[in-house]
Amino acid sequence: MADVAEPRPDPGRRPHLGMQAGELDGKWYAKYWNPVMAPLPEHIREALALGPQAPPRCLSLDTAGTLSAAGYGDLENGYSLFDDGSLHIAALTRMPGVSPAMLDWWFWWHTTETQRYKLWHPRAHVYAAWSGDPADGGAPYRERYIGGTSFVDEYIGSALGELAIRFVRPGRFGFSEDGLDPDEATAVCGVVGLSRVPLDWGYLIHHVRRVRDGAEMRSRFWMGGSHVSPRGGASLTGELATAADGLRNLGAEQARAMVVHCSQEMNHLAAFLPDLCEEFTRGAARGRP
């Protein structure tokens, strides 16, 4: 598994939660900042009330590419805990007015600036920076983020995570990339690691497909347990071994917090993404960055 290309960039001052006075000055997208978030959808509240689900109901990482099939899986919302200490998360987000291509645009556009990242989840996102080759302005949006690493600090529940998310090709998880026409579907795929030490601890997929009134996102996470591994040939000793032990048994509280976080941020994003993306596209046509 490839190592992160560069060390985590650190800000000149300590990151903070929320927008501070003046932080959005001069930002054309400032009007999209909205600290008020909608309640959790009913289908997510119902899934959380059911508690952990039987592991056989979960989509396995080996068959993740079947998310591109029509219909729905056995577990679309909720979480499961496995004997090795790992957990599986599933969440469905309905996104009226959104297209799959808008999600490819978002996963390119938001990564380079903390303020953009904070738009996504006002209650949890703290910091963002990007490591990767400069984006080719003429390349499809999906190609602009694949191969790069997003360094993010975010709260999952009450715990602050300092993460490195390496975006990889959907084919790595069994998707047919020829079948991912961004007008109809996309799959945002990543390897999730820690940003300050060379340790990976899971995988994520957001599969987005067009539906009658917009799009729906089906998110999946495989975290902890046997998914914990060192990056770049690092030895699992000392501080790294301690960090690995802490990630191997995540538990129900962490699983519930991840379901809530994913649903909150994706529903909040869906509320402003169509207008934001359209305004960016108009500005780009006029030559504005």
Results as ranks from 00 to 15, higher is better:
residue 156 I to M: 09
residue 126 V to R: 03
residue 158 S to C: 03
residue 80 S to F: 02
residue 26 G to W: 08
residue 235 S to R: 13
residue 36 V to N: 13
residue 134 P to R: 04
residue 168 V to M: 04
residue 43 H to P: 00
residue 62 D to N: 08
residue 153 D to L: 01
residue 96 P to G: 10
residue 227 H to W: 15
residue 228 V to Q: 04
residue 66 T to C: 14
residue 60 S to E: 12
residue 180 L to Q: 04
residue 213 D to F: 09
residue 32 Y to D: 07
residue 278 E to V: 10
residue 59 L to S: 05
residue 24 L to A: 12
residue 125 H to S: 15
residue 119 L to P: 11
residue 17 L to E: 12
residue 51 G to Q: 06
residue 102 M to C: 02
residue 162 E to Y: 10
residue 180 L to F: 04
residue 214 G to S: 14
residue 282 R to C: 08
residue 215 A to G: 06
residue 92 L to Y: 07
residue 215 A to V: 13
residue 90 A to Q: 01
residue 117 Y to K: 02
residue 211 V to D: 13
residue 29 Y to F: 15
residue 87 L to R: 01
residue 208 V to M: 07
residue 98 V to L: 02
residue 187 A to G: 00
residue 95 M to P: 03
residue 269 L to G: 06
residue 118 K to I: 06
residue 163 L to T: 04
residue 15 P to A: 06
residue 128 A to F: 02
residue 184 E to R: 05
residue 236 L to T: 09
residue 116 R to F: 11
residue 277 C to T: 10
residue 49 A to M: 14
residue 92 L to I: 08
residue 86 S to E: 02
residue 120 W to T: 05
residue 38 A to C: 04
residue 287 G to M: 11
residue 259 V to N: 03
residue 269 L to M: 11
residue 244 A to E: 07
residue 251 G to S: 05
residue 79 Y to A: 12
residue 168 V to K: 05
residue 90 A to T: 01
residue 284 A to T: 13
residue 244 A to R: 03
residue 143 E to P: 01
residue 256 R to W: 04
residue 213 D to W: 12
residue 114 T to H: 05
residue 3 D to N: 13
residue 71 G to S: 06
residue 222 W to I: 04
residue 203 Y to F: 07
residue 269 L to V: 14
residue 16 H to N: 09
residue 99 S to A: 13
residue 201 W to I: 01
residue 14 R to K: 10
residue 127 Y to L: 15
residue 238 G to I: 08
residue 230 P to D: 05
residue 207 H to N: 02
residue 173 F to S: 00
residue 67 L to V: 02
residue 246 G to T: 05
residue 123 R to E: 15
residue 20 Q to H: 10
residue 286 R to Q: 15
residue 202 G to V: 00
residue 180 L to M: 07
residue 222 W to K: 05
residue 193 G to L: 00
residue 260 V to Q: 07
residue 256 R to V: 10
residue 133 D to M: 12
residue 209 R to Y: 09
residue 183 D to I: 04
residue 128 A to L: 09
residue 160 L to R: 13
residue 16 H to P: 06
residue 182 P to V: 01
residue 239 E to G: 07
residue 241 A to L: 03
residue 28 W to V: 07
residue 3 D to F: 11
residue 83 D to Q: 13
residue 110 H to P: 06
residue 262 C to W: 01
residue 285 A to Y: 14
residue 274 P to I: 09
residue 44 I to K: 02
residue 144 R to Q: 05
residue 118 K to A: 03
residue 59 L to P: 00
residue 177 E to R: 03
residue 109 W to G: 07
residue 160 L to K: 12
residue 202 G to D: 01
residue 35 P to V: 08
residue 159 A to K: 11
residue 187 A to Q: 01
